[in-house]
């Protein structure tokens, strides 16, 4: 099986060690969902997390902005650092953390409000801008960066839920961008979209790499190969292998990685 690999050079502005996870274990009640994950994620790069269903890649992703805190029975052990700061330390505020680490979900989930309000909500609650021209500018630049501005500029007052699936997902990306995060987590952002909308999002991810650190969970190995510079392969709650995407897809070291990318299981 051949993969069309990302042809962009991977080293342009990469800042190593943006996020470091050390010996991370996650339990759902008595069930251990992640075993001893140690992983370094570089800044201004796209890191793909791949692996079969239930392997723990989404769980790991949700550890990075502490979304797992909302699940009562979930416990996280180990250390995760963002710019050298332990995000599970008592001094860390989850509200602040999530402003720094944005998230895009599997199913597009715009608020049942206008397109404008969808984008403006984040900046408003964080006090990043006042109502009026300042906010208009944030809304416009966020939509522009998400490649949606031209399609929606004449109907900002219409509900965000009236857009097509692909547009909704880009709206969600724009919403995440609007609070100027450093990291954007994407949990299978294209799994509910058609191929054309998917291509749109993939292009967008590549452009966003300039300014953001992106971590994307995907089931689609071609997608991982196309958009990411680094890939981590998860299997049964363990991180089996993490390497440059090119290496993973052309020369996997582990037997299980090889089996997965060649489609023997998954």
């Amino acid at each position: 099986m051949r993969f069309e690999l990302s042809d962009r050079s991977s080293g342009d502005r990469a800042t190593p060690g943006k996020i470091t996870a050390r010996a991370v274990d996650v339990y759902y009640g008595a069930k251990r969902a992640l075993h001893n994950i140690t992983l370094n994620i570089d800044g201004n790069r796209v890191t793909a997390l791949i692996g079969p269903s239930g392997c723990g890649k989404s769980t790991f992703l949700r550890c990075l902005n502490r979304m797992n805190d909302t699940i009562d029975i979930c416990r996280v052990h180990g250390q995760i650092e963002l710019d050298g700061e332990d995000i599970y330390a008592k001094t860390i505020d989850t509200v602040q953390l999530r402003a720094r680490v944005g998230m895009v979900f599997q199913k597009p989930n715009p608020f049942p409000k206008s397109i404008y309000d969808n984008i403006a909500y984040g900046p408003r609650i964080h006090g990043l801008a006042q109502r009026g021209p300042e906010m208009d500018e944030i809304v416009q630049s966020s939509l522009e960066r998400a490649g949606l501005w031209n399609e929606v500029k004449d109907r900002l007052k219409e509900p965000g839920t009236g857009l097509s699936g692909g547009q909704q997902q880009r709206l969600c990306i724009a919403r995440a961008i609007a609070v100027s995060p450093e990291v954007i987590l994407m949990d299978e952002p294209c799994s509910a979209l058609d191929p054309i909308a998917t291509a749109h999002i993939e292009e967008l991810i590549d452009e966003l790499r300039e300014n953001y650190t992106i971590i994307i969970v995907t089931h689609n190995m071609q997608q991982a190969a196309r958009v990411s510079q680094k890939t981590a392969f998860f299997h049964l709650g363990e991180m089996v292998e993490c390497n440059d995407t090119e290496e993973i897809f052309t020369n996997p070291r582990d037997e299980r990685t090889h089996g997965y990318i060649t489609g023997r299981y998954g």
């Binding site: 509200v95 979900f105 608020f111 609650i125 609007a178």
Partner: peptide
């Protein structure tokens, strides 16, 4: 109310009370 709306709001840094009152 679908959990996706709560997640969306939490994901951009709304506090739990804001999630409830606003969404």
């Amino acid at each position: 109310v679908p959990p996706s709306i709560r997640e969306a709001a939490l994901g951009i840094g709304a506090s739990p009370l804001q999630v409830i009152l606003h969404h």
